[in-house]
Design a protein around this nucleic acid. Sequence first.
DNA 1: AAGTTGATCAACCGCAGTTGC
DNA 2: AGCAACTGCGGTTGATCAACT
Length: 306
Amino acid sequence: MGRSPCCEKAHTNKGAWTKEEDQRLIAHIKAHGEGCWRSLPKAAGTTYSYLYLVCGLNIGMHAGRVGGDVDSCACTRVGLLRCGKSCRLRWINYLRPDLKRGNFTDEEDELIIKLHEFLGNKWSLIAGRLPGRTDNEIKNYWNTHVKRKLLARGVDPQTHRPLNAGTAAVQGMHTPSSPVVASGASPHQLAGGSSCSPDASGHSSDADDSVSLPPSLAGNLGVGMIDLNLSISPPCQPPLSREADGVLRTGYSEREKICLCLNRLGLHGGEGCSCVGSSSSSSLHPASSGVLRFLDASLFRDPKVQ
DNA sequence: AAGTTGATCAACCGCAGTTGC
DNA sequence: AGCAACTGCGGTTGATCAACT
Protein backbone atom coordinates (compact mmCIF):
# COMPACT_ATOMS: atom_id res chain seq x y z
CA MET A 1 0.00 0.00 0.00
CA GLY A 2 0.96 3.60 -0.19
CA ARG A 3 2.52 5.84 2.30
CA SER A 4 0.74 6.93 5.36
CA PRO A 5 -0.90 10.34 5.16
CA CYS A 6 1.38 13.34 5.33
CA CYS A 7 -0.12 14.45 8.57
CA GLU A 8 -2.22 13.35 11.42
CA LYS A 9 -5.90 13.47 10.62
CA ALA A 10 -6.70 14.68 14.08
CA HIS A 11 -6.37 18.39 14.76
CA THR A 12 -6.54 19.38 11.09
CA ASN A 13 -9.35 21.08 9.23
CA LYS A 14 -10.51 19.91 5.87
CA GLY A 15 -12.74 21.27 3.18
CA ALA A 16 -13.11 24.78 1.91
CA TRP A 17 -10.80 27.46 3.23
CA THR A 18 -12.22 30.44 5.04
CA LYS A 19 -11.14 34.01 4.38
CA GLU A 20 -9.49 34.10 7.76
CA GLU A 21 -7.47 30.98 7.03
CA ASP A 22 -6.41 32.50 3.72
CA GLN A 23 -5.28 35.68 5.43
CA ARG A 24 -3.29 33.75 7.99
CA LEU A 25 -1.63 31.67 5.34
CA ILE A 26 -0.79 34.73 3.24
CA ALA A 27 0.61 36.52 6.25
CA HIS A 28 2.72 33.53 7.16
CA ILE A 29 4.12 33.13 3.68
CA LYS A 30 4.83 36.84 3.41
CA ALA A 31 6.76 36.64 6.64
CA HIS A 32 8.57 33.36 6.12
CA GLY A 33 8.45 32.67 2.44
CA GLU A 34 6.98 29.81 0.48
CA GLY A 35 9.58 27.37 1.60
CA CYS A 36 8.39 27.19 5.15
CA TRP A 37 6.54 23.95 4.74
CA ARG A 38 9.69 22.29 3.64
CA SER A 39 11.76 23.31 6.59
CA LEU A 40 11.23 21.04 9.48
CA PRO A 41 12.19 21.92 12.98
CA LYS A 42 15.17 19.80 13.72
CA ALA A 43 15.38 20.02 17.41
CA ALA A 44 12.27 18.38 18.71
CA GLY A 45 12.21 14.74 17.91
CA THR A 46 9.76 13.38 15.39
CA THR A 47 7.86 16.26 13.95
CA TYR A 48 5.66 16.89 11.00
CA SER A 49 5.87 19.80 8.64
CA TYR A 50 2.24 20.64 8.95
CA LEU A 51 2.69 21.17 12.62
CA TYR A 52 5.46 23.62 11.94
CA LEU A 53 3.44 25.44 9.36
CA VAL A 54 0.33 25.57 11.44
CA CYS A 55 2.07 26.83 14.49
CA GLY A 56 4.62 28.80 12.58
CA LEU A 57 1.84 31.31 12.25
CA ASN A 58 2.14 31.95 15.89
CA ILE A 59 4.72 30.34 18.10
CA GLY A 60 6.78 28.06 15.92
CA MET A 61 6.03 24.48 16.60
CA HIS A 62 3.03 22.42 17.46
CA ALA A 63 3.53 21.57 21.10
CA GLY A 64 7.09 20.72 20.24
CA ARG A 65 6.47 17.24 18.95
CA VAL A 66 3.79 14.95 17.74
CA GLY A 67 1.79 13.77 20.63
CA GLY A 68 2.72 16.84 22.60
CA ASP A 69 0.35 18.87 24.63
CA VAL A 70 -1.94 20.04 21.88
CA ASP A 71 -4.26 21.89 24.17
CA SER A 72 -1.50 24.16 25.32
CA CYS A 73 -0.33 24.81 21.79
CA ALA A 74 -1.09 28.09 20.11
CA CYS A 75 -2.54 26.17 17.16
CA THR A 76 -5.79 25.82 18.93
CA ARG A 77 -5.95 29.57 19.36
CA VAL A 78 -4.70 30.41 15.89
CA GLY A 79 -7.42 28.30 14.36
CA LEU A 80 -5.53 27.40 11.19
CA LEU A 81 -5.28 23.70 11.57
CA ARG A 82 -4.31 22.62 8.12
CA CYS A 83 -1.95 20.02 6.86
CA GLY A 84 1.11 21.48 5.12
CA LYS A 85 0.12 19.79 1.93
CA SER A 86 -3.21 21.52 2.01
CA CYS A 87 -1.53 24.87 2.68
CA ARG A 88 0.84 24.42 -0.21
CA LEU A 89 -2.03 23.54 -2.52
CA ARG A 90 -4.10 26.48 -1.39
CA TRP A 91 -1.21 28.84 -1.94
CA ILE A 92 -0.17 27.49 -5.30
CA ASN A 93 -3.62 27.13 -6.76
CA TYR A 94 -5.43 30.07 -5.30
CA LEU A 95 -3.54 32.58 -3.19
CA ARG A 96 -0.35 33.16 -5.13
CA PRO A 97 -0.27 36.83 -6.17
CA ASP A 98 0.95 36.13 -9.68
CA LEU A 99 -2.04 34.02 -10.60
CA LYS A 100 -3.96 35.07 -13.64
CA ARG A 101 -7.69 35.14 -13.13
CA GLY A 102 -10.42 34.88 -15.66
CA ASN A 103 -11.18 32.86 -18.72
CA PHE A 104 -8.61 31.22 -20.88
CA THR A 105 -7.91 33.03 -24.11
CA ASP A 106 -8.03 31.34 -27.49
CA GLU A 107 -4.25 31.56 -27.62
CA GLU A 108 -3.98 29.77 -24.32
CA ASP A 109 -6.46 27.18 -25.55
CA GLU A 110 -4.37 26.39 -28.57
CA LEU A 111 -1.16 26.35 -26.59
CA ILE A 112 -2.64 23.90 -24.12
CA ILE A 113 -3.78 21.64 -26.93
CA LYS A 114 -0.37 21.71 -28.57
CA LEU A 115 1.48 21.11 -25.35
CA HIS A 116 -0.87 18.32 -24.39
CA GLU A 117 -0.23 16.67 -27.70
CA PHE A 118 3.44 16.60 -26.85
CA LEU A 119 3.34 15.97 -23.17
CA GLY A 120 0.14 14.17 -22.39
CA ASN A 121 -1.33 14.78 -18.98
CA LYS A 122 1.80 16.46 -17.63
CA TRP A 123 -0.20 19.34 -16.28
CA SER A 124 2.59 20.86 -14.27
CA LEU A 125 4.81 21.03 -17.32
CA ILE A 126 2.02 22.54 -19.36
CA ALA A 127 1.33 25.03 -16.59
CA GLY A 128 4.97 25.99 -16.68
CA ARG A 129 4.42 27.35 -20.16
CA LEU A 130 1.35 29.36 -19.22
CA PRO A 131 2.35 32.09 -16.80
CA GLY A 132 -0.23 32.70 -14.13
CA ARG A 133 -2.01 29.42 -14.69
CA THR A 134 -1.79 26.45 -12.36
CA ASP A 135 -1.64 22.79 -13.19
CA ASN A 136 -4.91 22.23 -11.36
CA GLU A 137 -6.60 24.99 -13.30
CA ILE A 138 -5.37 23.68 -16.61
CA LYS A 139 -6.32 20.14 -15.71
CA ASN A 140 -9.84 21.25 -14.82
CA TYR A 141 -10.07 23.38 -17.92
CA TRP A 142 -8.93 20.51 -20.07
CA ASN A 143 -11.49 18.15 -18.62
CA THR A 144 -14.37 20.57 -18.83
CA HIS A 145 -13.70 22.57 -21.99
CA VAL A 146 -10.85 21.48 -24.17
CA LYS A 147 -11.83 17.83 -24.33
CA ARG A 148 -15.23 18.76 -25.63
CA LYS A 149 -13.77 21.26 -28.03
CA LEU A 150 -11.51 18.61 -29.53
CA LEU A 151 -14.30 16.07 -29.71
CA ALA A 152 -16.40 18.62 -31.55
CA ARG A 153 -13.53 18.98 -34.01
CA GLY A 154 -13.49 15.22 -34.42
CA VAL A 155 -10.19 14.84 -32.64
CA ASP A 156 -9.49 12.31 -29.94
CA PRO A 157 -8.39 14.36 -26.92
CA GLN A 158 -6.04 11.67 -25.70
CA THR A 159 -4.26 10.75 -28.91
CA HIS A 160 -4.91 13.97 -30.82
CA ARG A 161 -5.71 11.84 -33.80
CA PRO A 162 -8.85 12.12 -35.89
CA LEU A 163 -11.53 10.10 -34.15
CA ASN A 164 -12.41 7.80 -37.06
CA ALA A 165 -9.19 7.78 -38.99
CA GLY A 166 -6.88 4.81 -39.32
CA THR A 167 -3.38 5.01 -38.02
CA ALA A 168 -1.92 5.18 -41.48
CA ALA A 169 -3.74 8.39 -42.17
CA VAL A 170 -1.69 10.22 -39.64
CA GLN A 171 1.71 8.74 -40.18
CA GLY A 172 4.29 10.95 -38.68
CA MET A 173 1.98 11.95 -35.92
CA HIS A 174 2.84 10.86 -32.46
CA THR A 175 1.04 10.37 -29.24
CA PRO A 176 2.15 11.25 -25.77
CA SER A 177 3.15 7.64 -25.36
CA SER A 178 5.31 7.71 -28.44
CA PRO A 179 6.72 11.16 -28.56
CA VAL A 180 8.98 12.48 -31.25
CA VAL A 181 12.18 12.79 -29.34
CA ALA A 182 15.70 11.65 -29.54
CA SER A 183 15.93 7.95 -28.86
CA GLY A 184 15.85 7.26 -25.20
CA ALA A 185 14.35 10.58 -24.30
CA SER A 186 11.04 10.76 -22.50
CA PRO A 187 8.44 13.44 -23.02
CA HIS A 188 9.74 15.05 -19.88
CA GLN A 189 13.06 15.43 -21.56
CA LEU A 190 11.54 17.10 -24.55
CA ALA A 191 12.79 20.42 -23.48
CA GLY A 192 14.59 23.26 -25.06
CA GLY A 193 17.18 25.42 -23.48
CA SER A 194 16.84 28.60 -21.54
CA SER A 195 13.51 30.10 -20.69
CA CYS A 196 14.51 33.37 -22.19
CA SER A 197 11.93 35.13 -24.28
CA PRO A 198 12.03 34.97 -28.01
CA ASP A 199 13.60 37.93 -29.69
CA ALA A 200 11.67 40.59 -31.48
CA SER A 201 11.42 38.50 -34.60
CA GLY A 202 9.38 36.01 -32.68
CA HIS A 203 12.02 33.35 -32.93
CA SER A 204 14.02 31.89 -30.17
CA SER A 205 17.22 33.79 -29.75
CA ASP A 206 19.17 30.56 -29.77
CA ALA A 207 18.33 27.91 -32.30
CA ASP A 208 19.66 25.28 -29.93
CA ASP A 209 16.94 26.10 -27.50
CA SER A 210 14.10 25.00 -29.70
CA VAL A 211 12.96 21.61 -30.79
CA SER A 212 12.64 20.84 -34.46
CA LEU A 213 9.55 18.96 -35.45
CA PRO A 214 9.20 16.56 -38.32
CA PRO A 215 7.48 18.30 -41.23
CA SER A 216 4.33 16.23 -40.85
CA LEU A 217 3.92 17.20 -37.25
CA ALA A 218 5.02 20.74 -37.76
CA GLY A 219 2.40 21.09 -40.43
CA ASN A 220 -0.22 19.71 -38.13
CA LEU A 221 0.70 22.17 -35.45
CA GLY A 222 0.95 25.00 -37.84
CA VAL A 223 4.44 25.79 -36.78
CA GLY A 224 7.91 25.01 -37.97
CA MET A 225 9.60 25.30 -34.66
CA ILE A 226 8.03 25.17 -31.27
CA ASP A 227 9.83 26.32 -28.21
CA LEU A 228 9.30 23.58 -25.71
CA ASN A 229 11.48 24.91 -23.01
CA LEU A 230 9.61 23.68 -19.98
CA SER A 231 11.29 25.60 -17.25
CA ILE A 232 8.99 27.56 -15.03
CA SER A 233 8.59 31.26 -15.38
CA PRO A 234 9.89 33.81 -14.57
CA PRO A 235 12.17 33.70 -17.58
CA CYS A 236 15.70 32.99 -16.73
CA GLN A 237 18.50 35.45 -16.77
CA PRO A 238 21.55 33.65 -18.04
CA PRO A 239 24.30 34.03 -15.51
CA LEU A 240 27.03 36.57 -15.86
CA SER A 241 30.32 34.80 -15.69
CA ARG A 242 33.96 35.58 -16.16
CA GLU A 243 35.57 33.25 -18.58
CA ALA A 244 39.12 32.03 -18.85
CA ASP A 245 40.13 34.99 -20.96
CA GLY A 246 38.95 37.31 -18.19
CA VAL A 247 36.04 38.68 -20.20
CA LEU A 248 32.60 38.84 -18.64
CA ARG A 249 29.96 37.09 -20.68
CA THR A 250 26.35 36.21 -20.18
CA GLY A 251 24.72 32.91 -21.03
CA TYR A 252 25.44 29.33 -20.30
CA SER A 253 28.77 27.89 -21.17
CA GLU A 254 29.00 24.73 -23.19
CA ARG A 255 29.96 22.83 -20.07
CA GLU A 256 26.87 24.02 -18.23
CA LYS A 257 24.66 22.26 -20.73
CA ILE A 258 23.59 18.71 -20.10
CA CYS A 259 24.64 16.62 -23.04
CA LEU A 260 22.53 13.75 -24.30
CA CYS A 261 25.26 12.00 -26.22
CA LEU A 262 24.94 8.24 -26.22
CA ASN A 263 21.52 8.66 -24.67
CA ARG A 264 22.88 9.36 -21.29
CA LEU A 265 23.20 12.49 -19.32
CA GLY A 266 26.53 14.08 -18.76
CA LEU A 267 28.34 17.30 -19.20
CA HIS A 268 28.81 18.54 -22.69
CA GLY A 269 32.29 17.66 -23.77
CA GLY A 270 32.67 15.16 -21.00
CA GLU A 271 33.12 11.43 -21.12
CA GLY A 272 30.94 9.86 -23.73
CA CYS A 273 30.16 13.14 -25.39
CA SER A 274 30.44 12.85 -29.10
CA CYS A 275 29.82 16.51 -29.70
CA VAL A 276 33.42 17.37 -29.16
CA GLY A 277 34.87 18.60 -32.34
CA SER A 278 31.63 19.88 -33.75
CA SER A 279 32.41 23.32 -34.99
CA SER A 280 29.50 25.13 -33.44
CA SER A 281 27.02 24.58 -30.69
CA SER A 282 24.26 25.26 -33.16
CA SER A 283 25.20 22.34 -35.38
CA LEU A 284 22.90 19.38 -35.21
CA HIS A 285 23.88 16.60 -32.94
CA PRO A 286 24.39 13.28 -34.73
CA ALA A 287 22.83 11.29 -31.94
CA SER A 288 19.70 13.33 -31.78
CA SER A 289 19.12 13.94 -35.47
CA GLY A 290 18.51 17.51 -34.59
CA VAL A 291 15.42 16.77 -32.58
CA LEU A 292 16.90 17.31 -29.21
CA ARG A 293 20.39 18.16 -28.30
CA PHE A 294 20.78 19.78 -24.96
CA LEU A 295 18.86 20.19 -21.82
CA ASP A 296 20.07 23.48 -20.57
CA ALA A 297 21.35 23.60 -17.04
CA SER A 298 18.71 26.22 -16.29
CA LEU A 299 16.10 23.50 -16.41
CA PHE A 300 17.52 21.98 -13.32
CA ARG A 301 17.51 25.13 -11.27
CA ASP A 302 14.76 25.72 -8.80
CA PRO A 303 12.85 28.57 -10.42
CA LYS A 304 11.88 29.87 -7.03
CA VAL A 305 15.47 30.37 -6.09
CA GLN A 306 16.70 33.69 -7.29
C1' DA B 1 -41.43 27.40 -6.48
C1' DA B 2 -39.35 23.03 -6.12
C1' DG B 3 -36.76 19.37 -7.88
C1' DT B 4 -33.36 17.57 -11.15
C1' DT B 5 -29.44 17.66 -13.97
C1' DG B 6 -25.11 19.25 -15.60
C1' DA B 7 -21.00 22.17 -15.30
C1' DT B 8 -17.40 23.99 -12.77
C1' DC B 9 -13.53 24.04 -9.81
C1' DA B 10 -11.41 23.82 -5.14
C1' DA B 11 -9.68 20.45 -2.44
C1' DC B 12 -8.39 15.81 -1.20
C1' DC B 13 -6.06 11.31 -1.87
C1' DG B 14 -2.58 8.17 -3.01
C1' DC B 15 1.51 7.42 -5.30
C1' DA B 16 6.37 8.06 -7.10
C1' DG B 17 10.43 10.33 -6.72
C1' DT B 18 13.61 12.82 -3.82
C1' DT B 19 16.04 14.02 0.26
C1' DG B 20 18.23 13.56 4.60
C1' DC B 21 19.74 10.87 8.37
C1' DA C 1 22.86 1.18 1.92
C1' DG C 2 18.57 1.35 3.83
C1' DC C 3 14.91 3.61 5.76
C1' DA C 4 11.76 7.28 7.01
C1' DA C 5 9.86 11.44 5.89
C1' DC C 6 8.89 15.20 2.56
C1' DT C 7 7.51 17.16 -1.86
C1' DG C 8 5.13 17.40 -5.93
C1' DC C 9 2.13 15.39 -9.24
C1' DG C 10 -2.01 13.44 -11.48
C1' DG C 11 -6.47 11.44 -10.70
C1' DT C 12 -10.65 11.85 -8.38
C1' DT C 13 -14.25 13.64 -5.43
C1' DG C 14 -17.68 16.56 -3.76
C1' DA C 15 -19.70 21.13 -2.90
C1' DT C 16 -21.77 24.80 -5.19
C1' DC C 17 -24.18 27.14 -8.66
C1' DA C 18 -26.81 27.75 -12.91
C1' DA C 19 -29.91 26.05 -16.25
C1' DC C 20 -33.66 23.44 -17.18
C1' DT C 21 -38.10 20.87 -16.40
